[in-house]
Design a protein around this nucleic acid. Structure first.
Ligand SMILES: [Mn+2]
Ligand SMILES: [Mn+2]
Ligand SMILES: [Zn+2]
Ligand SMILES: [Zn+2]
Lengths: 170, 170
DNA sequence: TGGATTGCGAAAACCGTTTTCAATATCCAC
DNA sequence: GTGGATATTGAAAACGGTTTTCGCAATCCA
């Protein structure tokens, strides 16, 4: 099985692929290749989940402690513009970023207890939205659906909560 | 027909009802009745749509120009706490508030061209969300669904856009 | 009606994000 | 390779919506 090893390889090739796509975007736009941007992008695509700017900067600083907020913000904007990354806002006042996974689009359930974010996709839901838009003579460009609530499994939820609070105190 | 007159009466009784409910909430909480809060609440429930703080303050100042932002913000928090009003955020960086209409819950379509906000409610959509939550062992407390796009009727959209830009320059 | 308690408004603080600006790095034409 | 036009960087300041502070004013119960 060796799931950890497998996972690591998958992450690496995924990250490499995204880094290459970003490099191509940079060239296509006539922008310059810089160490800082490369570091930030490489770091980002090796993180999982819905990453805040601060979380990303903390990781980035491990590779190059001189990189500051401004460059991280600027690079994230480029990543969004390149469509390699999407910005999310789950109502806690800060932007979070995620790389597109294989599932192109998905929505989110956010546990207000442990902070876990579950992703889901349902074609019927998507179709129903289209139908409702049609009825209102409306053309959808994009949508956001967020279900706020709580995990039903109290044990798993409590564990995650603990884990999160532990990692919050870096 | 006299739709305007009819509308006015409906709004008045609606506003009066909400004002009374807020007064009751204030007493229940042991807070004091003040002119400023009454003015703000009375003004709010006579406005339609999804009202920003600035829009509300502008209206409020017509009745009492000495009222400032702080009191408007504080009163809106009370209105939300009383559950007479809901806060919305449609991604333009500012909070908007709406009184509960007869339809208790609804979702939104936002035209990115003219800024119009259409409201809708669909029981199948709600049920489907519940089903998906169930499958993920998740209990929904609340949700937000926003469809961003554009009106299909270009004329109506352009008219609304013009109207909005006109009223923006107060 | 006194007086403890709340609420008020102007201004300052807050907080995540964006912009400024002087110094530095990139990279294309030579 | 090198010069030099151009883009990028990082610290710090600015921004914009919201919250908090603080001294004064209003509320309201005994
Ligand atoms: Mn996601
Ligand atoms: Mn609404
Ligand atoms: Zn949970
Ligand atoms: Zn429109």
């Amino acid at each position: 099985m060796a799931p950890v090893h497998h996972r690591k390889e998958v992450d690496e090739s995924y990250a490499k692929e995204k880094e290459a796509a970003f490099a191509e975007f940079i060239q296509r736009k006539g922008l310059k290749t810089t160490r800082q941007r490369n570091t930030i992008v490489a770091t980002f695509f090796r993180m999982r989940g819905h990453v805040s700017v601060e979380e990303l900067l903390n990781e980035v600083k491990k590779a190059n402690s001189r990189i500051g907020y401004a460059t991280v913000y600027r690079t994230l904007h480029l990543l969004v513009e390149s469509e390699l990354v999407e910005e999310r806002r789950f109502g806690d006042g800060l932007a979070r970023y995620e790389g597109h996974s294989d599932v192109e689009h998905h929505d989110h359930m956010i546990c207000l207890e442990c902070g876990e974010i579950f992703e889901f996709f349902n074609p019927r839901l998507e179709a129903l939205q289209e139908k409702l838009a049609e009825e209102n003579d409306f053309k959808i460009f994009r949508h956001r659906l967020e279900l706020y609530g709580a995990c039903k499994d109290p044990e798993a939820c409590a564990n995650r909560k603990q884990k999160r609070q532990a990692s919050a105190g870096n």
